[in-house]
Design a protein around this nucleic acid. Sequence first.
DNA 1: CTGAAAGCGCTTACAG
DNA 2: CTGAAAGCGCTTACAG
Lengths: 336, 336
Amino acid sequence: MVGIVDVAKMAKVSTATVSRVLSNNMNVSSKTRDRVLKAVNQLEYKPNRLASNLRKMSSKTVMAVVPDITNPFFSSILQGFKDVALEFGYHVLLGDTGNSLEQERDYINLVKERVVDGLILATARLPKEEILAASQEIPVVLACEYMDGFDIPTVSIDNVSAGREAVEHLIRLGHRRIGMITGPLDVILSKDRVKGYYQALNLNEIPIEGVLIQEGNFSVTSGYETMLKLLALKDPPTAVFATNDEMAVGAMKAIKQRGLQVPNDISVIGFDDIPLCGLVEPELTSVSQPRYDMGYQAMQMLLSIIKKEELTRNQIVLPHRLMLRDTCCKRPSPML
Amino acid sequence: MVGIVDVAKMAKVSTATVSRVLSNNMNVSSKTRDRVLKAVNQLEYKPNRLASNLRKMSSKTVMAVVPDITNPFFSSILQGFKDVALEFGYHVLLGDTGNSLEQERDYINLVKERVVDGLILATARLPKEEILAASQEIPVVLACEYMDGFDIPTVSIDNVSAGREAVEHLIRLGHRRIGMITGPLDVILSKDRVKGYYQALNLNEIPIEGVLIQEGNFSVTSGYETMLKLLALKDPPTAVFATNDEMAVGAMKAIKQRGLQVPNDISVIGFDDIPLCGLVEPELTSVSQPRYDMGYQAMQMLLSIIKKEELTRNQIVLPHRLMLRDTCCKRPSPML
DNA sequence: CTGAAAGCGCTTACAG
DNA sequence: CTGAAAGCGCTTACAG
């Protein structure tokens, strides 16, 4: 392995000068610079990152914590993370928690060993206190979930409004019994979307019924099963809002399997707008989040903080959008 | 930040002893061990990884290079990687190439800066020589693609046989004009599956026709478009084998859009057996690969090599399996 | 503009 | 079983 001393020797300068040339922010005379560069090329010298990391007390690495990388929503966010990181010479460590609190904690604890310079959380089930504690030691930014009352830097959509608008769309189509299939209720973003559901019903003076709200776990199967429960009600909903697309697709399966039609008998609306929406039949109406962009901006924010740049804002709310496709239609008037 | 010297001072031992206790492989009297441990706990000391990395010349990190993390096939492999890595105290750096050769090369070059201890390639479009060169510097294992004539450690299925069996299934159902929608032909695994297609036709004395083989790029859209080309033939195929599920689903879209039915008019078979297969209608028959297990075993292999353990075998072939669902049926006899 | 020197925080032969 | 000391390969005040 060729080290910096070899380069220094060949270029007849000190290692300090070699280092300066390579980090190219110091003034070095162009003559010596050329000499050094020539030696670097000739020896194919690559600085040893392990050494520079220790010296600079930085790993040039950030950890991305996601609940499930297999979910296209989170893998897109990850791509956003990665593209920014790469651009700035950072690497991203994969922190897939598999939805486990335990693993989420393990990853967060890495900050103490200085294996990463920053942490980006696309999932935050841990108590606020633990997350705050981590953010005391190291830059942390939250991607996709907004934590009320803390000023940890965050990039997310407005999940309350998004939920409300999805349900209002259904109400505008004439529906009044609207089921909700939500993700786990210990996840903030689930709670927010349910809050939106409540708001929409309240605004339209539709009474809220607990049985119409079912908790799933974001999987297709859980959407299927909770939909079955909704269908078993003596007065089943005429429309259903699921807080992710997988559950919505599971719900569609259940509806069809019961011999009913989507959307004629029951309208369905999903969340996230993953590619799957365009592949099922009928194509699924869904609330779209700018997932890649969320990842992109969250990582920009994180790197800014790491570099101690001034942040213009530290809470960014990105726009969502209702993607109309074929799973929602007017509710036939009960008068007919 | 509390360092090892603080612990040493408090426990009244040398830093060497503290280090020995923490790496717990040296003999330390239980009395001093207890004293050290107590100090460690009291001070909440965490060893600085940056320092130990330099000293040990190891980052305890491996790079996982995948073409597209958004693809559920590769994200499952990644999970396999991660689970093993975690188990052995390693971290995995995300190397999504976005199908770009350039980025693949960039990641591989990281080996020279010692930012990772090993490399696991779930994509290998680079010339064999470059990959071999990298494997000279650092442990490398190939996941999912087998490179003929090189003995780089590899975990994969037998893509030739898998392709052959898929096509033979179609032939057994009476099909003789069988279309193939393949991934990019500069990818080894695509070539292997095409080879299997040839073998199946040859074995059954069916002449090979070039127009029946169309090259896509693994996307739904490319499956759709290439299927359109096949349908435009004056004598279109009665069955199609696509080398991944996304393209198969795209092909199904094209078929339906032309007013034809799957499988009654045209049978379709995919590859990878991702969850999507169970969500489209009709449900897609597909060749299943043990993707999580491929990732798992590949990472085990890599870590073994890093630790310089003896490998029993360095080429592992895992079983594939044809998952029969609803997109293939008997070809109606043309005599009738 | 350049060099000599210190030091980042560990770990590991070496000696006892 | 334990400690003193060297050193991993860089970078960065400091001095000139």
